[in-house]
Simulated assay, not measured.
Amino acid sequence: MTLQVTFLGTSAAVPTTERNPSSVFVRREGDAFLFDAGEGTQRQMMRYGTGFDVSDVFVTHAHGDHVFGLPGLVHTLDFNDREDPLTIHVPRGVREQVADLVFAVGGDTGFPVRIREVAAGETVLDREAYEIRTFTTDHRTDSVGYALVEDDRKGRFDREHAEELGVPVGPKFSRLHDGQAVELEDGTVVEPEQVVGDPRPGRTIVYTGDTRPHDAVREAADGADLLIHDATFANDANERAAQTGHSTAGEAAKIAAEAGVRALALTHVSSRYAGDARELKRDAEKGFPGEVFVAHDGMEYDVTFPDTD
């Protein structure tokens, strides 16, 4: 089951020739989402072939490098004769600002655009097999992060043992796997726990947006498969990071290590590292033993299940 991240924009506030401002595209099977929409996001979607079938945009905060792409995106969707609604989720207190931005030039679109305020600690999207939740972040303005959390999956069905117990191949296998007991021809009752293992975890992606290290981020990222964390600066610029409400690569790594995540993506890269961002990766690797990489525009990352067997 597909769960893929495409990094559309990985720069901090000042874009470079190689990095667009912040935006992350996530596709889960037939569903598509954007997390932040920096200037030119719609062009990045064209360039990297993500498609435009996003149903929701999740904005972490209303600084320009995270929202200036919204007007262009909305009008591009309109020019493509979109009819389905688009919901833009924003932190509390900035709905009016974002609405003014989105509809700054012409407020009529051929499809509904809903701008919805959210607060930390909410489930903002609840789908059949997953949900998207908010959590507190620490920036210089009202801000939240987002976590896409899949439901647990069914345990593995032990077909061999089921046959040993006399369960005939067919519908009774499915009933057992769905948690229902079945009765055999001789009157024997087979319970699901006899042939179905423990539930298996789904996958989790956590996106912080701009933030200082924060306990709420650590809690939201507990055991996550992918943590996409602000890593604007290298470790030697820790004072600058604190002054501007951002994190260093080492601070992101510390959060990732304490949360026990499987992989750490460093993003929101300062333009001072435009020529070479390897220092960020080296700094993070000192504090995080798992997979770590500096995200770049156009990079695709497939989030696999924790157990791949």
Rank of each mutant, 00 (worst) to 15 (best):
6 T>E: 10
9 G>I: 01
10 T>L: 03
17 T>W: 15
20 N>Y: 12
20 N>D: 10
22 S>I: 02
23 S>E: 04
23 S>P: 04
24 V>A: 04
31 D>E: 14
31 D>M: 06
31 D>G: 01
31 D>H: 12
35 F>K: 01
36 D>S: 15
39 E>P: 00
39 E>N: 04
43 R>K: 14
45 M>V: 06
49 G>A: 07
51 G>Q: 11
55 S>C: 10
55 S>Q: 14
57 V>I: 14
58 F>G: 00
59 V>W: 01
62 A>M: 03
63 H>E: 12
64 G>E: 11
69 G>L: 08
74 V>I: 15
74 V>H: 04
76 T>E: 15
79 F>C: 04
79 F>I: 03
81 D>I: 00
93 G>W: 07
95 R>V: 13
96 E>G: 00
99 A>I: 12
99 A>E: 14
104 A>W: 05
105 V>R: 15
107 G>S: 03
108 D>A: 14
108 D>R: 15
108 D>M: 12
109 T>E: 09
109 T>R: 15
112 P>M: 11
119 A>C: 12
123 T>H: 09
123 T>R: 15
128 E>W: 03
129 A>S: 11
129 A>L: 13
131 E>S: 10
133 R>E: 09
138 D>A: 14
138 D>N: 11
139 H>P: 02
146 Y>I: 01
147 A>T: 08
148 L>S: 00
149 V>H: 05
150 E>W: 09
152 D>V: 06
153 R>H: 13
156 R>P: 02
161 H>E: 13
163 E>C: 07
163 E>Y: 10
164 E>R: 14
168 P>L: 12
168 P>S: 05
173 F>K: 07
175 R>T: 06
176 L>Q: 04
180 Q>M: 11
183 E>Q: 15
185 E>Q: 06
190 V>H: 09
190 V>K: 08
191 E>H: 12
192 P>Q: 06
200 R>Q: 14
203 R>I: 05
203 R>A: 06
204 T>Y: 03
205 I>Q: 03
210 D>I: 09
211 T>E: 04
221 A>R: 07
224 A>V: 02
227 L>R: 09
231 A>C: 02
236 D>C: 07
237 A>K: 13
239 E>D: 15
239 E>H: 15
240 R>K: 13
240 R>Y: 07
243 Q>H: 03
246 H>V: 00
247 S>Y: 05
248 T>A: 10
253 A>C: 06
254 K>Q: 15
256 A>I: 13
258 E>A: 15
258 E>C: 07
263 A>Y: 03
265 A>M: 13
266 L>P: 01
268 H>T: 00
268 H>Y: 01
269 V>N: 02
272 R>D: 10
275 G>V: 09
276 D>T: 07
283 D>I: 01
286 K>T: 11
286 K>F: 05
290 G>H: 09
293 F>E: 01
293 F>D: 00
294 V>M: 06
305 F>I: 08
306 P>E: 03
308 T>I: 12
